[in-house]
């Protein structure tokens, strides 16, 4: 017996919710970045589940694309975080609210 499609969607929805709440609650740029990764992963899970239940390879290809975008995001995002840390000695997003300096 296999779990139904609905249970995969439910898991994905719960993970996405946790990710969204995390992005809002976290004040730390790296923490927010990780929560965004969690949301991307939740979406990936729905893609793979649909790909399985409709026997279509498109969903899995899309997961691949999402992963590539996440890798690009990691490269640029972490670059921004390091550059920000050099100027502000902090990765707190609240510190980014001041344009001075």
């Amino acid at each position: 017996m296999e779990p139904s499609l609905a249970s995969y969607l439910a898991l994905s929805g719960i993970l996405f919710t946790i990710g969204t709440v995390g992005v809002i609650f976290k004040r730390n740029a790296i923490g927010m970045f990780m929560c965004i990764e969690l949301m991307l992963n939740a979406v990936n899970l729905t893609f793979v589940a649909f790909s399985r239940y409709y026997a279509d390879v498109t969903g899995q290809l899309f997961v691949f694309m999402v992963m590539s975008v996440a890798a690009a995001e990691a490269a640029v995002g972490l670059g921004i975080i390091i550059a920000f840390f050099r100027n502000r000695i902090s990765v707190d997003v609240d510190d980014a609210s001041i344009l001075k300096n």
């Binding site: 609905a6 249970s7 969607l9 439910a10 929805g13 996405f16 919710t17 946790i18 969204t20 709440v21």
Partner: peptide
């Protein structure tokens, strides 16, 4: 979070 959770249960 509550809205999204409700939506999840609706989808389920």
């Amino acid at each position: 979070g509550l809205i999204l959770l409700a939506q999840t249960f609706f989808i389920f």
